[in-house]
Design a protein around this nucleic acid. Structure first.
Lengths: 341, 341
DNA sequence: CTCTACAATGAAAACGCTTTCAGAAAGCGT
DNA sequence: ACGCTTTCTGAAAGCGTTTTCATTGTAGAG
């Protein structure tokens, strides 16, 4: 089937029908030079009757621009992902760019990781752990536009990075738990290793403890891995070990959901016996039971800003090397908020 | 910056370095005609030392193929989305295609909806409600490859469609609830209007009722809209109205999560007072409390199969008009499963 | 040995645009 | 009327590939 795939009309057809040259058609298409009103009208009309659509590849070849940005991420999962992608898609679309997605996990074995950026896209959005450092440096040296999401660039490589104000967010939440709610034994469920967001969140936890003169207790820290199931297991262990605590700070909301589930299963009342807080404020969190107190991270905004900065870069503008998005406390019932009881 | 963007090497550079013609380079690149082993070696070497990557746009222009498929969806959200996208990405990648994403919600006002498929992609994956019917018909008449996801084609338009065996899944779940668990007053929380999955699921509910001689009771049906919050509200209404029921069948897992939250808030024990079941088995569902009994829909597989069928179409093969993916009962605690109590 | 067939290569023509260059027409100050 | 812009337009040269066509050997068939 489809052996004779309907001859698409080209710019030449339009030119012929409108009685002008292809240059003129191109000019009205791109508004790239003055054209007489009457001519514009005729060309537009011809375009309409022929249902003409410029051929993207030809355009890209001639103009040396793809008007496409690529998004690299390790894999597609978690409740973090949809808001981020939504922001990215919106940002790209608003500036007239298309969005190409690569889950690097699925990429062919060492095949042509290079083919990624250099020719298919004008720039790359790189999420966390999705591109080997060597490849990144090479692209950088070629002057290829990139923006990092939740990951800082390698030493000496000035690739802009957008991320959350993780440490400050944790800090404010900890202050609240300690000062307002009076908790002292606060456990922390870390994110995955080698993840920067996770690193800063944990650091915020430790620093705030110190600032309040509370000694750091290694028994109160386990790995939650930003994962619901891992978090459940960790909490079950705490329960089994009989470790006592006033509150559990989960490094993200997915793991906080796991904490909630494990505590409920273990017959522990939240927040009466143990308070629980998370980080991110993914859409789901307000529906947890009890509704989750958390640190709101502007996930969608991060995606949106990242892609806009990338496009600025593509279009030759300068861009701040670090874009730190503010976080915000969202107090709900899981931490024992009396106002919402 | 980036005014002098590192001259990328072209096929001509490779040819020169290897001492052959560009035709030969192209041939070893695409394995499109026999080339002497020694020549292949030299060309490969030249490619390597120049770090040459073929320019995608030029390739597309010359070969009239983009090796890209587009995914159209209304918006990016919900727990349904990540598995689906994962399947699609994997399927596309496996067959050597790139994936372009369009959230049609973000598309410019009536601008060039046409530009979507015709020139940027070799084919389009169309999710539910994301493309006006007229546009679809037009593309179809042009012979443009498309596959629909969870939506059937308009009258007389033979666009393949992949979706779940919704009615059968609901049917089996209902049989189980009625026959094995002995429930009679089963409420149903519908999906959004004008959504086919929602339609078939509701139909399955009604038909099974009839099959078991249970009269249909309109009081036991409310709109859940595949949405956690809407579902909560609906359940709150039921509770306020004092409607009695043995079980609630939510048309998808997101709304089932809302049901669970609302019941807990209303002090109703699940499954002891009211059983709850959902549909989809999104990753999250097994972590709900109690773990959700649901109908597993192969979401990732649907995406995977859809994109593979699309690519088959692109490559000129025939494809079944309807791909119905089987669903499967997943019995967990929320329906009162004694084995897992 | 000749004939045919096929492996191996190169030259050159697309592919459908954008962009430079140049020229014609038209306005305008003097 | 004269030069000088400025506006508008067309011809033609790319952009970096793939693909067709032609050419040259070289090997097996007869």
């Amino acid at each position: 089937m489809n052996l004779n795939p309907a001859p698409r009309s080209t710019i030449a057809d339009v030119a012929r029908l409108a009685g002008v040259s292809i240059s003129t058609v191109s000019r009205v298409l791109n508004n790239t030079a003055p054209v007489a009103d009457e001519t514009i009208r005729r060309v537009r009309e011809a375009i309409e009757t022929l249902r003409f659509t410029p051929h993207a590849a030809a355009r890209q070849l001639a103009s040396r621009k793809t008007n496409t940005v690529g998004l690299l991420l390790p894999t597609i999962s978690g409740s973090f992902f949809p808001p981020m992608l939504r922001g990215i898609e919106r940002g790209a679309r608003e500036r007239g760019y298309d969005l190409l997605i690569y889950a690097t996990q699925n990429l062919p074995e060492e095949g042509h990781p290079r083919a990624l950026g250099e020719h298919n896209t004008d720039g790359l959005l790189i999420f966390t752990d999705s591109l080997p450092e060597a490849e990144m440096v090479h692209l950088y040296q070629l002057g290829f536009p990139m923006v990092l999401l939740h990951q800082s660039p390698p030493e000496g490589v000035a690739i802009p990075c957008v991320t959350f104000e993780n440490k400050g967010g944790v800090r404010r939440m900890m202050d609240y738990l300690i000062e307002t709610r009076g908790y002292r034994r606060i456990a922390f469920l870390t994110g995955p290793e080698n993840t920067e967001d996770a690193y800063w969140r944990e650091l915020g936890y430790r620093e705030t403890l110190t600032a309040h003169g509370i000694p750091f207790n290694p028994d109160l820290v386990k790995m939650g891995g930003f994962d619901e199931q891992l978090a459940q297991i960790a909490v079950q262990e705490w329960l089994a070990e009989g470790v006592k605590m006033d509150a559990i700070f989960a490094a993200d909301d997915d793991s906080a959901a796991g904490v909630l589930a494990a505590l409920r299963r273990g017959g522990v009342a939240v927040p009466d016996q143990i308070a629980v807080v998370g980080f991110d404020d993914v859409p789901h969190s307000r529906f947890l039971s009890p509704p989750l107190t958390t640190v709101r991270a502007p996930i969608e905004t991060a995606g949106y800003e990242a892609v806009r900065h990338l496009i600025s870069l593509v279009e030759g503008e300068e861009v701040d090397p670090l874009i730190l998005l503010p976080t915000e406390l969202v107090i709900r019932r899981s931490c024992g908020n009396p106002d919402d009881a």
